[in-house]
Amino acid sequence: MKKNKVIYIYLLGILLFTNCKSFTKNTSNFIDNLMFNDELYYSLKVEKDNVIIYDKNKELIKNDREFSKDNIFIKFTISKPLSCKYFVVYKVIIDKKLAFIVLRDSEGKKNYTYYLIKNDNNKTWHITNVEVNNTR
């Protein structure tokens, strides 16, 4: 009886470890694909050309990263920015084929909501819809 419990716990540990490992890989691939979407750059460019996104819970990145496209720079950071204008990763849901990201401006006045879908053929993520809403 005790032997069966040990085997079940061992199998559960292996299952959890492999799921967490594959999720980390998917998040890395996801952020790289996200940064090559024109919609992200141009929706955030409305605010300014140098965009800072603060990921305090490390949901999208583990270390600071910078991306650029058409003279628009986006910096993901895990430490709170010193500048007064930045975006905060408010909500992230990543599934096998669908994703949902909400960025909120530092003043808490606007939400930028991104809906993404994964292409089965080439395994890349594409933004299907962008919504900008006032929060107050």
Score class of each variant (00 low, 15 high):
residue 63 N to V: 12
residue 97 K to E: 13
residue 46 V to E: 11
residue 75 K to I: 01
residue 107 E to R: 06
residue 102 V to Q: 05
residue 45 K to D: 08
residue 130 V to Y: 04
residue 49 D to V: 02
residue 12 L to G: 05
residue 115 Y to N: 13
residue 24 T to L: 10
residue 7 I to K: 13
residue 43 S to M: 05
residue 78 I to H: 00
residue 105 D to Y: 04
residue 114 Y to G: 12
residue 94 I to V: 14
residue 93 I to A: 14
residue 69 K to C: 05
residue 26 N to C: 02
residue 16 L to A: 15
residue 123 K to Y: 09
residue 1 M to F: 06
residue 52 I to W: 00
residue 113 T to Q: 09
residue 77 T to I: 03
residue 31 I to R: 08
residue 68 S to T: 11
residue 69 K to G: 07
residue 87 F to T: 12
residue 51 V to L: 09
residue 66 E to N: 06
residue 38 D to G: 10
residue 63 N to M: 09
residue 115 Y to W: 03
residue 92 V to H: 01
residue 116 L to W: 02
residue 20 C to W: 01
residue 116 L to V: 04
residue 45 K to Q: 04
residue 95 D to F: 00
residue 79 S to W: 00
residue 31 I to M: 06
residue 52 I to Y: 02
residue 66 E to Q: 07
residue 37 N to Q: 14
residue 39 E to P: 00
residue 20 C to Q: 12
residue 90 Y to A: 12
residue 112 Y to I: 09
residue 88 V to R: 12
residue 64 D to M: 06
residue 76 F to D: 08
residue 9 I to F: 01
residue 7 I to N: 08
residue 67 F to S: 14
residue 9 I to A: 12
residue 96 K to L: 10
residue 136 R to L: 15
residue 70 D to H: 08
residue 7 I to G: 04
residue 7 I to R: 09
residue 37 N to A: 11
residue 116 L to R: 03
residue 85 K to R: 14
residue 44 L to H: 01
residue 88 V to H: 03
residue 18 T to M: 04
residue 25 K to P: 00
residue 12 L to V: 06
residue 60 L to H: 03
residue 107 E to T: 12
residue 48 K to F: 01
residue 25 K to G: 02
residue 21 K to N: 13
residue 65 R to I: 12
residue 55 D to W: 00
residue 115 Y to L: 13
residue 36 F to P: 00
residue 112 Y to V: 06
residue 72 I to N: 10
residue 5 K to G: 07
residue 66 E to L: 05
residue 134 N to V: 13
residue 42 Y to V: 04
residue 50 N to I: 04
residue 81 P to K: 02
residue 115 Y to H: 13
residue 47 E to K: 11
residue 34 L to I: 08
residue 99 A to W: 04
residue 99 A to L: 05
residue 2 K to T: 12
residue 130 V to T: 15
residue 109 K to S: 13
residue 58 K to L: 06
residue 101 I to M: 07
residue 33 N to W: 04
residue 41 Y to G: 10
residue 128 T to Y: 03
residue 92 V to E: 08
residue 90 Y to M: 12
residue 3 K to T: 14
residue 5 K to Q: 07
residue 10 Y to D: 14
residue 117 I to Q: 13
residue 135 T to Y: 02
residue 80 K to H: 01
residue 66 E to I: 06
residue 29 N to I: 06
residue 82 L to A: 13
residue 106 S to N: 10
residue 111 N to V: 00
residue 12 L to W: 02
residue 17 F to D: 05
residue 47 E to Y: 09
residue 23 F to V: 11
residue 66 E to T: 12
residue 76 F to N: 05
residue 75 K to V: 05
residue 134 N to W: 07
residue 136 R to E: 15
residue 37 N to R: 10
residue 127 I to Q: 07
residue 116 L to D: 03
residue 62 K to H: 03
residue 87 F to A: 15
residue 37 N to V: 01
residue 11 L to Y: 03
residue 13 G to S: 10
residue 122 N to S: 06
residue 105 D to R: 07
residue 128 T to A: 11
residue 59 E to I: 02
residue 127 I to F: 03
residue 12 L to K: 11
residue 26 N to Y: 03
residue 57 N to Q: 10
residue 75 K to S: 01
residue 35 M to E: 11
residue 45 K to C: 03
residue 92 V to F: 00
residue 11 L to I: 09
residue 134 N to G: 14
residue 44 L to D: 01
residue 20 C to H: 10
residue 133 N to D: 15
residue 112 Y to W: 04
residue 39 E to H: 08
residue 110 K to R: 06
residue 41 Y to A: 08
residue 55 D to V: 07
residue 109 K to P: 01
residue 8 Y to R: 14
residue 47 E to C: 10
residue 82 L to C: 05
residue 6 V to M: 05
